[in-house]
Amino acid sequence: SADYSSLTVVQLKDLLTKRNLSVGGLKNEWVQRLIKDDEES
């Protein structure tokens, strides 16, 4: 899986927004959300 934890907050928020995922919570929660989205898609 991609190394989301190395991305900036701005990059992570951009990815979350593009995938229609929530940008609520902490940075590590966003990373988990993106990883989960990868596994489900």
Score class of each variant (00 low, 15 high):
Leu15Val: 05
Ser5Gly: 14
Thr17Leu: 15
Lys13Leu: 15
Leu12Ala: 01
Tyr4Ala: 05
Ser6Met: 09
Ser41His: 14
Val9Ile: 13
Val23Asn: 08
Lys36Thr: 10
Gln32Trp: 01
Leu12Asp: 02
Leu34Thr: 02
Tyr4Met: 04
Leu12Arg: 00
Gly24Val: 14
Lys13Gln: 11
Gln11Pro: 01
Leu16Phe: 00
Thr8Cys: 08
Asn28Leu: 09
Gln32Leu: 08
Asp3Pro: 07
Leu16Ala: 02
Ser22Asp: 12
Glu39Tyr: 12
Asn28Val: 09
Gln32His: 06
Tyr4Gln: 02
Asp14Met: 05
Ser41Pro: 09
Val31Lys: 00
Asp38Ser: 04
Glu39Ile: 14
Thr17Pro: 02
Gly25Ala: 03
Glu39Pro: 02
Asp14Arg: 06
Trp30Asp: 05
Val9Thr: 13
Val10His: 12
Gln32Asp: 13
Asp38Cys: 07
Leu15Pro: 01
Ser5Glu: 14
Ala2Thr: 15
Leu21Asp: 04
Asp38His: 05
Lys18Ala: 11
Asp37Glu: 05
Asn28Pro: 14
Gly24Glu: 15
Leu26Glu: 15
Asp14Gln: 08
Leu21Phe: 00
Asp37Val: 03
Ser1Asn: 13
Glu29Asn: 06
Val10Gly: 13
Gly24Phe: 01
Ser1Gln: 13
Leu21Tyr: 00
Leu15Lys: 03
Leu26Tyr: 10
Lys18Ser: 12
Ser5Ala: 14
Ile35Thr: 08
Glu39Met: 13
Ala2Arg: 13
Thr8Leu: 03
Asp37Gln: 11
Val31Ala: 01
Asn28Gln: 10
Asn20Ile: 03
Val31Trp: 05
Leu34Asp: 03
Lys27Phe: 10
Leu16Asp: 03
Glu29Gln: 07
Leu15His: 04
Val10Thr: 14
Val9Ser: 14
Asp3Tyr: 12
Ser41Gln: 14
Arg33Ser: 06
Gln11His: 04
Asp38Trp: 06
Ser5Asn: 14
Ser22Thr: 07
Asn28Ala: 11
Arg19Cys: 05
Leu7Pro: 02
Leu34Gly: 01
Arg33Pro: 04
Asp37Tyr: 15
Leu16Arg: 01
Ile35Met: 12
Gly24Lys: 13
Val31Pro: 03
Leu7Lys: 04
Lys18Val: 08
Asp37Gly: 06
Trp30Ile: 10
Gln32Ile: 08
Lys18Arg: 10
Leu21Thr: 02
Leu15Ala: 06
Leu16Trp: 00
Gln32Ala: 14
Asn28Trp: 14
Glu29Asp: 15
Trp30Pro: 03
Lys36Ile: 09
Ala2Val: 15
Thr17Gly: 09
Val9Met: 13
Asp3Val: 06
Ser5Pro: 08
Ser1His: 13
Ser22Trp: 02
Tyr4Lys: 03
Leu12Trp: 00
Lys36Pro: 03
Leu34Gln: 00
Asn28Tyr: 10
Gly24Thr: 14
Gln11Lys: 04
Ile35Gly: 04
